[in-house]
Computed example of a mutant assay.
Amino acid sequence: MTDSKFDYEPVFNAMLAPLVVLTPDLVIVAANNSYLKATGRSRTDMLGQPIFTAFPANPEAHNDPNARGVRVLRASLERVVATGKAESLPLQRHDLEVAGEPGLFVERYWSSINTPVLGSVLWIR
């Protein structure tokens, strides 16, 4: 028997994999401690922000064919919402804007597994 009042937040925050939860319109509603560490952000920096506002594309990388992480991730997230099926992405370049230093980016590579939380797609992890 499952207790519907179980507090999942400590479990979510203790997970070693960086996890972020998005609404179907790609707004950040939760991030675990590993995600905060990997991105150098605080929850207040991100919660309620569209993911590509919180983590914009590096304008200096537009000529680099390896820097297509934003386009690839957006397309994957949109497919997950449309199909309700999980998707794995290979390593993609998506530079990270340095927190507190607008316009300053560091080169980063990410792989992700975008998974719908089914019933109807309410969240993406």
Rank of each mutant, 00 (worst) to 15 (best):
H94L: 12
G48F: 09
G84Q: 05
H62I: 13
A61V: 03
S42L: 00
A54I: 03
D95H: 04
R41S: 00
E97I: 13
R74N: 12
H62G: 06
L89I: 03
E101R: 15
D45N: 06
E78F: 08
I51T: 10
K85H: 15
T53P: 03
V81C: 08
V106M: 01
E97C: 11
R43T: 04
L73H: 10
A75K: 15
I51S: 06
R93Q: 06
F105Y: 14
N66V: 02
T53Q: 11
D95M: 02
N63L: 05
G84V: 02
A67G: 06
E97G: 10
K85T: 12
A57D: 15
R74L: 14
G84W: 04
G100I: 09
R93E: 01
L47C: 02
P50F: 06
D45F: 03
R74I: 08
D64Y: 06
G48W: 11
D45H: 05
H94W: 13
L96Y: 05
N66G: 05
A86N: 07
G100E: 06
E97H: 09
F52M: 12
G69W: 03
R68D: 06
G69Y: 04
D64I: 04
V70F: 07
E78N: 15
A61P: 06
S76D: 14
P59T: 10
L73M: 15
S42E: 01
H94K: 09
T83K: 02
P102I: 05
V106R: 04
T53N: 07
V80Y: 10
E60R: 13
G100A: 08
F52N: 11
S88G: 09
A86Y: 09
R74D: 14
S76E: 13
L73Y: 09
R71C: 07
L104E: 13
A67T: 06
G48I: 10
A99C: 09
A54R: 06
S76I: 14
N63F: 00
L104S: 11
E60D: 15
R93T: 01
P56L: 11
L91A: 01
R68P: 01
M46P: 01
A75C: 12
G103T: 00
F55S: 11
L91H: 01
P102V: 04
A61Y: 04
L91Y: 01
G84M: 03
P65D: 01
A67R: 10
D45M: 04
Q92L: 14
G69E: 06
A61S: 14
F55D: 07
M46D: 02
R71N: 13
L77V: 08
A61H: 07
Q49W: 09
E87P: 07
R68C: 05
L96A: 05
P50K: 10
T83L: 02
Q92G: 02
Q92W: 08
R74S: 13
